[in-house]
């Protein structure tokens, strides 16, 4: 399968990349590892005149703490460096677990990058198909048309965010730093996603995601990630869940639960997360209740467009949330025990 023709641009540094983005704007696409962009180009899902390669932008590759102890992940850091980083153990296990489940371990990990995974386009069974497959009927909303094949009479695109990294980063309360020639801005991860299937990201065409910032590591904080797929490698999530919890004085002090595969953004379940606050980490009923509510809310955002039946994915959303919360709590308590021993 041949790629359509385009002009290949190879900026030497960040400034040159931002200049290209300012000049070519929506006619340009940013190439990181290529495992999403090039497939979509082959399928003629994205038409682009210029491809801007990030390969020389070495300063975007790396993981460093900033002066406030927050961890800054350069957007062009390969997935394999995230998995192997000693800085991303402990509190951040939810992220490394998620990254490990992306694609196939030996291959995508050397090409795929954390920024690329964060910007994984939303997917739908009726959209992510060859040009020939799609040519048999009118275009869908994501493809520039007016029909939705996933949900009858839908007035908008119902494609889903299935990025494992994005789901885990949502539970970790990450911050996304965007840069353009005009300057820099940072968005809480909730605001980085628009929730619109047609245009899922708040990135404007002249901006580049440069850094993903994680809160400073804490003791007694645990995170986790669960993903439902048919195969243990290659597959995108049918549904996924991630949790980040903080335990203080034997009570759950903070909780963030996110579900992937339910809507165009990783779904942050605030209400369900709040049910956990003040509860003991051993309170199985509270966890079950939270998971059930999270499942109900997530189910409302799901449509039948990712493979597996809708009913199965909806049921599994609650199961994955329960397992993710249990694991995050266990990890938070282990961290707590370790913290006590060290003191």
């Amino acid at each position: 399968m041949r790629l359509p023709a385009f002009e290949y641009l190879e900026p030497r540094d960040r400034q040159e990349a931002l200049d290209y983005l300012a000049r070519y704007s929506e006619n340009a696409s940013i190439l990181a590892g290529g495992s999403d962009l090039l497939v979509r180009m082959k399928q003629r899902l994205v038409r682009t005149s210029y491809v801007i390669s990030l390969k020389h932008l070495k300063d975007l590759d790396g993981i460093r703490p900033d002066e406030d102890g927050r961890l800054c992940l350069g957007s062009n850091t390969p997935l394999v460096s995230i998995i192997r980083s000693p800085l991303l153990q402990g509190a951040y296990r939810g992220l490394t677990d998620a990254i490990r489940r992306i694609g196939a371990p030996p291959i995508q990990h050397y090409r795929g990058t954390i920024g690329g995974n964060l910007c994984l386009e939303t997917r739908c069974l009726y959209y992510n198909q060859s040009a020939f497959w799609r040519s048999g009927r009118p275009r869908c909303q994501k493809d520039g048309g007016e029909i939705c094949y996933a949900e009858e009479n839908s007035d908008r695109c119902r494609s889903a965010n299935v990025s494992d990294g994005a789901c885990a980063l949502m539970a970790l309360d990450a911050e996304i730093v965007l840069e353009s020639r005009e300057g820099e801005r940072s968005l809480p991860i909730e605001e980085f996603f628009t929730g619109k299937g047609e245009s899922p990201f708040a990135r404007s065409p002249d901006e580049l995601v440069t850094t993903i910032r994680l809160p400073a590591p804490e003791t007694a904080f645990g995170s986790s990630f669960r993903k439902l797929t048919y195969r243990s490698a290659i597959d995108f999530a049918l549904v996924s869940a991630s949790a980040g919890v903080k335990v203080e004085a034997g009570r759950i002090a903070r909780a963030r639960i996110a579900v992937g595969g339910a809507g165009a953004a990783p779904l942050l379940l605030r209400e369900a997360s709040e049910k956990l606050l003040g509860k003991s980490p051993e309170d199985g009923d509270a966890v079950a209740e939270t998971a059930a509510q999270a499942g109900r809310h997530a189910a409302a955002f799901m449509v039948d467009n990712l493979g597996a039946t809708l009913e199965y994915r909806q049921k599994m959303a609650a199961v994955l949330v329960r397992k993710a919360v249990q694991e995050a709590l266990a990890r938070a308590e282990n961290g707590n025990a370790r913290g006590r021993r060290e003191r």
Binding site: M1, Y8, G34, S35, V39, A104, I107, Q108, Y110, R111
Partner: peptide
């Protein structure tokens, strides 16, 4: 597949396995 799923185009680039169908020659 030409889409990075099957792995039959795998070659080593600087010792790492990559999908040559999803790697631009320029890269």
């Amino acid at each position: 597949c030409g889409e990075g799923v099957c792995g039959s185009c795998t070659v080593l680039m600087d010792g790492h396995p990559v999908r040559s169908c999803l790697t631009l020659a320029a890269e």
